[in-house]
């Protein structure tokens, strides 16, 4: 049972959240829903990268007066730095894409991707 929970927590849970985002990108037609799907993919990837650096019985990578004894009992700080970068990039991309969505609505008066492309829905 513990093994199954490990697999779910560290690999398949983040992967499942990522794939929910892929499913949303494939099925949704509303432009806001597409941006939300990209954000959900971000969440899954960030969880996966943080899980790579996790260690049992370790402490957060900050030197304090009482808690941390040596840095060999820290969790790995490098994935955390990468994910911090990724979150900030994701908010920049989201702001830009939302500006594009608003401009798109001003031009086409619709949020539906099918109507914008001019393809008949079957």
């Amino acid at each position: 049972m513990g093994e199954i929970i490990n697999y779910w927590t560290f690999i398949y849970g983040p992967l499942a959240i990522f794939l929910v985002g892929v499913y949303g990108l494939l099925t949704q037609k509303n432009l806001f829903k597409l941006v939300i799907s990209i954000n959900i993919m971000d969440l899954g990837v960030n969880l996966y990268i943080i899980a790579l650096g996790y260690m049992d019985n370790a402490s957060a990578p900050i030197y304090t007066a009482k808690l941390a004894v040596t840095s060999s009992r820290f969790v790995d700080p490098v994935p955390q730095a990468l994910v911090l970068t990724s979150i900030v990039i994701s908010v920049a991309v989201t702001a830009f894409v939302l500006a594009l969505v608003i401009k798109n609505y001003e031009k086409y008066n619709t949020l539906d991707l099918i109507k914008i492309k001019g393809i008949e829905n079957d």
């Binding site: 690999i11 790579l52 049992d56 004894v69 790995d76």
Partner: peptide, 25 residues
């Protein structure tokens, strides 16, 4: 096959001795 690297993450395979032996107490 990569589940082994979780939870028994060995930092001594990734970083140098100078970093590992830093201590603040």
């Amino acid at each position: 096959p990569d589940l082994k690297i979780y939870k028994q993450n060995n930092l001594s395979q990734k970083t140098g001795k100078v970093y590992l032996n830093r201590t603040v107490n």
